Amino acid sequence: MKHYEVEILDAKTREKLCFLDKVEPHATIAEIKNLFTKTHPQWYPARQSLRLDPKGKSLKDEDVLQKLPVGTTATLYFRDLGAQISWVTVFLTEYAGPLFIYLLFYFRVPFIYGHKYDFTSSRHTVVHLACICHSFHYIKRLLETLFVHRFSHGTMPLRNIFKNCTYYWGFAAWMAYYINHPLYTPPTYGAQQVKLALAIFVICQLGNFSIHMALRDLRPAGSKTRKIPYPTKNPFTWLFLLVSCPNYTYEVGSWIGFAIMTQCLPVALFSLVGFTQMTIWAKGKHRSYLKEFRDYPPLRMPIIPFLL
């Protein structure tokens, strides 16, 4: 059985960083990364991007050496992705923050609204209902991160945790300040508006959870398998008939419901920014589905049925 020789060059300087002799033909890129780490321990596998061309796409960890368009002496180019952190850690951090930050404003801890309001309670029912909904949303997200989601990528750049936390924590503080303010004004149409908004919120939260469970069942634990998601017997998953990412559709719907319930401008802005970002993600995933699966359902749109 022939063996391969693998040289790894710096993608920027073309400097030879490592030479691997007698590499098995069936070795994966993940195994080559581990061998590279032995000579350069500062670059652990998650930091490494190996590619066939200095400006090309990163090879997948599961790619097999003998199936790549290389000879028995293969040249790979290395790029440092920077310090990495696990997706689970990032999600837990960015979701735990809003949960606790919101509660600080809800309980009106000292130095927020003035001494005479310390630890007082709002007289408006919608304020307490909003706290329950907000807390439920982020507790749900935390539990899904721990027990439901299966991540195709193990890590992301460390800098992302600061960007994500600034976004989630900042908006949580902004909306919580106004919703729990002693001078907060309840919704214009009173109980009817709150009940309608609560119904929207609850339905969308159930829908979002149902989609996450359906997506989880598509991917076996520990794998990166991708399949076309289809509706199940659960009615909340029937939205798969019309959109590629109904989890985002339901998520946006939840925040629209919360915005109607609280009639709070920061919540509306958070919903708008979230919708914009999720639309970008949904379009990317939709394109990926179309590219990977020739039999992908043609009627589906990325996030909004028939429109977007």
Rank of each mutant, 00 (worst) to 15 (best):
K55T: 07
V243M: 06
K2P: 10
F293I: 08
K2C: 07
Q277K: 03
V70G: 05
K16E: 08
R150H: 09
D61C: 09
I303G: 00
T73K: 03
P98L: 02
T89P: 14
Q84W: 04
R123N: 00
L129R: 03
F162L: 11
D295I: 06
E7V: 07
A221G: 06
P45G: 08
W87G: 07
P25F: 13
Y189C: 09
E251Y: 14
S58D: 13
K16P: 06
F19P: 02
L146P: 09
I200L: 04
E292C: 11
T125P: 10
D61G: 11
P235E: 01
V127A: 09
Y184N: 12
C165H: 15
Q192W: 15
P110T: 03
W87Y: 05
P229A: 12
T75P: 10
I303E: 02
T13A: 10
I260P: 01
H40D: 08
S288V: 02
E24F: 13
N164G: 00
A221D: 13
S121H: 04
S86V: 12
W169S: 04
V88M: 08
E7N: 05
M175L: 06
P54L: 10
F270I: 11
A172K: 02
K291E: 09
D21L: 07
R51H: 10
T89K: 03
K16T: 13
N34E: 11
K2D: 06
L206I: 06
Y289E: 14
H40F: 07
F171N: 14
L206V: 13
T28S: 08
K233P: 14
R14Y: 05
M301W: 06
L299W: 05
L272R: 03
Q66H: 12
V243L: 06
A27Y: 13
L242P: 06
Q66W: 03
H115C: 00
Y230I: 15
S288M: 00
L104C: 02
W174V: 02
A30E: 10
L20C: 07
P231E: 15
T185L: 13
T145P: 02
K22M: 07
A176P: 01
P231I: 04
L290F: 14
I303M: 10
T232A: 10
L20G: 06
L52W: 10
K57G: 08
D61E: 08
T39K: 12
V23Y: 00
V109F: 02
Y77W: 15
F293M: 06
T75F: 01
F162S: 10
F258H: 13
P231Q: 14
A11M: 11
N247I: 11
R150C: 09
F36V: 05
Q277L: 08
Y117N: 04
F119V: 09
Q66V: 14
P297Y: 00
I256K: 02
V127L: 06
M213R: 09
P182F: 02
K224W: 10
A83I: 06
L241M: 06
Y102V: 03
F151C: 01
R108K: 01
K57M: 00
T125V: 05
T225P: 11
M278G: 10
G207Y: 04
K22I: 03
P187C: 13
Y177S: 03
E15D: 11
L307R: 08
A130E: 14
P298H: 00
M261G: 06
T28K: 05
P235N: 00
Q84R: 10
V148I: 14
R51C: 12
A221E: 05
P157T: 03
F171V: 08
K38A: 14
H26Y: 09
A46N: 13
L239C: 03
Q193E: 04
Y113S: 06
P246A: 13
M301F: 14
P229K: 07
T13E: 00
L196H: 07
W281L: 05
F36H: 07
R287H: 08
T225H: 13
T125F: 13
C133P: 01
E94Y: 01
V23M: 06
V88T: 15
W255N: 15
F19W: 06
G154A: 05
L183R: 13
F91A: 03
F78K: 06
G56V: 04
H286R: 10
I256T: 11
W238L: 09
A83Y: 15
E5T: 11
R47S: 01
R294Q: 08
H40C: 06
Y4R: 01
P45W: 01
V202M: 11
R159S: 08
T279F: 03
L241P: 11
F201W: 13
W169G: 09
A176N: 14
R123I: 14
T125L: 00
K140E: 03
Q42N: 15
E5I: 14
K12Y: 03
F258K: 00
F240L: 10
V273I: 14
P298N: 06
F293R: 13
D217H: 14
I8S: 08
K57L: 04
M175N: 13
L241R: 11
L142E: 15
R141G: 01
K227S: 00
H153I: 02
F111D: 13
T75M: 05
K2M: 05
L50A: 03
H26K: 04
